Computed example of a mutant assay.
Amino acid sequence: MSATPPPLPPVVRAFVDAANAQDTAAWLRTFAPDGAVDDWGRVFTGYEALRGWSDAEFIGAHVTLDVTEVSAGPDEGDVTVLAQVGGDGFNGPSHFAFTVREGLIALMRITA
């Protein structure tokens, strides 16, 4: 019997829910104003850059995220999510490492 993964921090749950709902505005609200996405070394910082990345490669590609594992990171506010990704772009398992500060995402890294 597998253990239940720890719960997602509320802002990470909102990130996943907004992505699955294809709701770009709600997805952007999960980020700090200077929040960033690191997509395999390509870094997009701030709302305008995040929207451009998402429109082309995330929500614009009809992403779906089915969270299968959650693990705490080394620092408080850090969490890594393993999700099965679907949509019109990459499909398969991927890790999303979140740095949460003051209730918002400061950084989301896609690692593997």
Rank of each mutant, 00 (worst) to 15 (best):
G35D: 01
V63W: 12
M108Y: 07
F15G: 03
P7L: 09
V70F: 05
A49W: 01
G60R: 04
A19H: 02
A72K: 14
D34H: 04
D23I: 07
A25N: 11
V100L: 08
E69H: 14
N20F: 04
F98Y: 12
F90P: 06
H95C: 10
L82E: 09
L50P: 00
G77V: 02
V67R: 04
D55F: 06
I59C: 01
P7E: 13
D55K: 09
D78W: 10
A18Y: 08
T45K: 11
T64V: 09
T68Y: 03
D23W: 08
L8H: 00
L82S: 09
T45R: 11
P9R: 01
V85G: 00
R42V: 08
S54D: 04
F15K: 04
I59M: 05
N91S: 08
T30H: 05
A97Q: 08
R51E: 15
V16H: 08
A26I: 08
A3T: 09
R29N: 15
P7T: 12
E48A: 15
I105M: 02
A72V: 13
F58I: 06
F44H: 15
G60A: 06
I105Y: 04
G60V: 02
I105L: 05
L28T: 05
P10I: 00
F90S: 06
D88T: 10
T45P: 00
F44C: 05
E76R: 13
P93M: 13
G35S: 03
V70K: 01
W27Y: 09
I59H: 02
V81Q: 06
D23V: 09
P93R: 15
P6A: 11
F98Q: 09
R109D: 06
T24K: 06
P93N: 13
D75T: 05
F90M: 13
T99M: 01
A49S: 13
P33N: 01
I105A: 00
T24S: 11
W53E: 07
R109E: 13
I59N: 01
A61E: 10
G86V: 03
V70R: 01
A3R: 01
P93E: 14
R13K: 11
G87W: 00
A83S: 12
V43L: 02
G86I: 05
A72H: 14
L65K: 06
T30I: 07
D17C: 03
G52S: 14
T24R: 07
R101L: 11
T45V: 15
F90N: 09
G73I: 05
E69R: 14
G77S: 03
A61R: 12
L65H: 09
